[in-house]
Write a protein that binds this DNA or RNA. Sequence first.
DNA 1: AATGAATGAGTCTTCATTCAT
DNA 2: AATGAATGAAGACTCATTCAT
Lengths: 225, 225, 225, 225
Amino acid sequence: MARQSKSKGRTLTSKGRQRRSQILSYATVRFASDGYHPTSVADIVGGLGVGKGVFYWYFESKEQLFLEILRDAQKDLRRYQRDSIADLTDPIERIEAGIRAGVIWMADNPELRRLFEFARSEDTFARSMKVGEATLISDAAEHLRIAIDAGRIPCRDPEALAHGIFGVTNQLTMAYIDHGDGDPAEVADLVVSICRNGFAGLSDQLTGDSNSADVIVNPAWSRTV
Amino acid sequence: MARQSKSKGRTLTSKGRQRRSQILSYATVRFASDGYHPTSVADIVGGLGVGKGVFYWYFESKEQLFLEILRDAQKDLRRYQRDSIADLTDPIERIEAGIRAGVIWMADNPELRRLFEFARSEDTFARSMKVGEATLISDAAEHLRIAIDAGRIPCRDPEALAHGIFGVTNQLTMAYIDHGDGDPAEVADLVVSICRNGFAGLSDQLTGDSNSADVIVNPAWSRTV
Amino acid sequence: MARQSKSKGRTLTSKGRQRRSQILSYATVRFASDGYHPTSVADIVGGLGVGKGVFYWYFESKEQLFLEILRDAQKDLRRYQRDSIADLTDPIERIEAGIRAGVIWMADNPELRRLFEFARSEDTFARSMKVGEATLISDAAEHLRIAIDAGRIPCRDPEALAHGIFGVTNQLTMAYIDHGDGDPAEVADLVVSICRNGFAGLSDQLTGDSNSADVIVNPAWSRTV
Amino acid sequence: MARQSKSKGRTLTSKGRQRRSQILSYATVRFASDGYHPTSVADIVGGLGVGKGVFYWYFESKEQLFLEILRDAQKDLRRYQRDSIADLTDPIERIEAGIRAGVIWMADNPELRRLFEFARSEDTFARSMKVGEATLISDAAEHLRIAIDAGRIPCRDPEALAHGIFGVTNQLTMAYIDHGDGDPAEVADLVVSICRNGFAGLSDQLTGDSNSADVIVNPAWSRTV
DNA sequence: AATGAATGAGTCTTCATTCAT
DNA sequence: AATGAATGAAGACTCATTCAT
């Protein structure tokens, strides 16, 4: 009767599925706060007040559990970004909305951002990470390519740009949200602004209020380069 | 005779100092390739073909060793960036040279970049990382502030810009050097270009060959934003 | 309606009895192929595609199940040997037929032979094995005693001879049937021949075709002994 | 300085080598008395009053330790048999001496005989056993072949005979020495006698004191077969 | 300075068994 | 009769660290 959910090829009841996701989410929190290695299976089941066997009823191993967390998180982030740009047709708007969605998602899921960071640093998980990351990058790159083709932004390697956006998003989210107390929406603005203009490009103030695009950005710059 | 060097409050001979740094660098390699936790002290001494006592003669603990690696690496990166901009006086040039130095250093020390990534993800080491990172960020921010004050780049929060630069450098180095086979100098160019202009700013081609700054970057952009 | 069958003091329906013997025979296969200890109850019920409760509905414990397998197998072997000699009256013929039956049964039940071997090696089961084995041995010894009393074979401790037969049967079955691909009937001939004559006795060829029993077996032998 | 002994590729001091063989022999006893699986590593180190790590300092795993015990035992048995027949030149005498040596060795090492029995019953170890067993069998078969070629015993497959001898030795040793209190030398006589003559051949009394080989062994036999 | 030996708490994982449904 | 859930003791093995020599 119960709907099925894959877990060691087992058939889970609804109570079982509940338990499973309880473990999943509690483990996520612990991994994020203490680190993957320092968090033992005993910590997880202990924190949940259940027997040790429960863990292995639902998961094959600590490693598989972690990989599942990672996969789910990457899927969720991607879905969130997709949903956030679904209604937009203008490529530039889509890019911006995607960036904002990325920041918001990371602000909403600081544990997962941290887990990503760890996962990238260890071979066992790096492989799995690269797949999901590549998807995210190529999603973004695709939008950039469209914008370039449409002559909306200057021609540059869209994949490199996507990486740049990714890097800025990551770093500023960490600095101002995880380690600071920045407002996600404002941080998103900041990220968009930096991604769009770089440090030498138009400042927000300039772009914001001016249609006098003839205010040459920084004549100084072109001379010094 | 031998000059002295502190280690666990011990006085080392020159041979001792050699041993010590041998351990230091071998551990770095192992930590980077296998991860900090998965690398045991036994792995380290075993790989070096020495007894276990050696490790504890020179280091207080595995954790202290790692912290030392981290501190040394951050110091080295900072020194390298300083040296790279020492001869330059123009703030914009200094910023660029700093970015380039960052990319080159990371290309030269991929293990350390990876270690940084891990260290940030675990509380025990995150604290230590933040200090060094903050220094790097504030170094860059200072140069940006000077450039802004001099009217050379548009006014924006210099610290945020510095974070952005940091994020782009990290991400592109990882993508194109650690996980790819990009040429460090070219990647450095790419990073500089993206940091300077963002995705919507001037492309390299435009800035490079043109004095016609009147080529308005992207009129479309201002309309859509 | 259904006839009754005891199991854990329970009354089983015919379907229940079927389940029970299904478990019994599947467990036998697994125990034989993987070993008793390495085979878990989970392996058994998993392989059968049923829930864990089923096992404990029909059996008190893994150990009891194994003991039952052992007992059943020993009973079956004994019954098979009895049936095989039922029609024979000549003591020598009975002995030979018993040997042949032993080889055939073991060829037909290689898993059980293996289980016997394990069971003898572990105290928990050795006790149970000895009882059944003693029965087999004394069955054979009885026939040997009769043959000796009848002057049909030379006087020797019949129990020792029975053990000898048992050992030869076991070893040759294992070597040529379990681990080889010998034909059971031929192996049975071989076992009979070796049991009858030993290595220094008459060869099959000699006994087979000769009524010249005066062909003294090996005069050399008596000299060298 | 210390001589070397392979153990996880480690260099052992003489104290270390002592510890290693202490573990080896204590484990042998425990495995034999309680069974391989029921004996935990904790039991072994506990019984020796040392820390758990000691075990893994000297052995890679419980399984490797067991394999080493097995290998050593097989080697020892073989050496013992070789030494026991070294001075003999007559093939028949060599065979007999080999049988006797086998019985004596097993009487002296009942634990090892038991371990052999278990090892044969589990796939993990069966492979390793077969190698050593095959050597023993082919050693014996070679002597039998020589005796056959010399016309000293009737022509029969020497390998099959060797298996027969092996089976008889095993079974009678177990029955009369391990589970009984037979005198090893007498049991050896018994085994030799059974191996030589089978149940239908000359009894020892007959062969021993008689040159009247004309006492036709068992005229009855040839008639009944 | 350096070695091999030793420790023992702690890791992940398994498993026979019980139980509510 | 049968299921999935749960237990928790126990298993093999690891590892940072200490110590006698």
